[in-house]
């Protein structure tokens, strides 16, 4: 972990307007939960839809995508990455600093609202479960989307395709794809902590944790290797 890179990355992230994209979704989740409570309707009617359908399936991956694809992707896009890359630093150090910043910001801006939403919906225990699952998902997504920003010049588009097509569509149709769905890991871990009927984990908890770890590590290792072979293109090309 290189503190200077982490510092520049964090300043860059908070300095860009894109940062504002982090707020609406968490606010929406908490707002809908508050609305549900105020309506007097039983929380089992709206809880799963808001917490899982919106919180876990939309807010978490979108926030992770904005941050994860932004920490390095936006610097590659505007060319400022050169200043960090022309240093005699192991590329591992650069990627790890980026990952730590992305994961930390994503965890804070998703797990905290999920905790609040869970606690308001049912109990502190549900909140804690959701926070734990979301934190695991946030770290995994961050590594995945950071890698994506090195594989493609359009990481946000690819990330959205993964979220919507793979996790949104295929995991509901084909049970085999669940093994490779960060969303399913998040739900399973949350369920195991919260023990509630609001959440239905579809993969086993050990599998979820191990797969999340494997995805995170593999993405990071691959990202480091891609950064070693980072090429610059001239303005004309």
């Amino acid at each position: 972990m290189n503190p200077t890179i982490a510092w520049i990355t964090a300043r860059g992230l908070f300095g860009r307007r894109r940062f504002l994209l982090l707020f609406p979704l968490p606010v929406l989740v908490i707002g809908l939960v508050a609305l549900g409570r105020a309506s007097g309707v039983s929380n089992s009617d709206w809880g799963p839809a808001v917490l899982v359908g919106l919180g876990v399936a939309v807010m978490l991956p979108i926030v992770a995508l904005v941050v994860g694809a932004g920490v390095l992707g936006s610097e590659i896009e505007d060319g400022t990455a050169v200043h960090i890359l022309t240093k005699p630093l192991p590329r591992r150090e650069i990627i790890l600093a980026k990952l730590v910043v992305a994961a930390a910001i994503t965890v804070v801006s998703t797990a905290v609202p999920m905790f609040v939403a869970g606690a308001l919906t049912d109990s502190v225990r549900l909140g804690a479960g959701l926070a734990a699952g979301t934190a695991l998902g946030a770290v995994t997504y961050s590594a995945l989307f950071l890698l994506l920003s090195l594989l493609s010049r359009r990481p946000v588009l690819l990330g959205l395709a993964y979220i919507m097509i793979w996790e949104g569509l295929l995991t509901n149709l084909l049970s085999g794809t669940r093994v490779l769905s960060v969303q399913q890991y998040t739900i399973s871990v949350a369920d195991s902590v919260a023990h509630t009927s609001m959440l239905t984990g579809r993969v086993s908890v050990p599998l979820a944790v191990v797969m999340a770890a494997i995805l995170t590590v593999a993405s990071t290792v691959l990202a480091i290797d891609r950064l070693r072979s980072f090429t610059l293109t001239g303005e004309t090309s």
Partner: peptide
Amino acid sequence: RNPSVYRILGLVSEREAVHGFL
């Protein structure tokens, strides 16, 4: 693929990109 060259090499690239917020 050899970052240690940057110990002795400096580059001023054509793209005028700097961290404007610093």
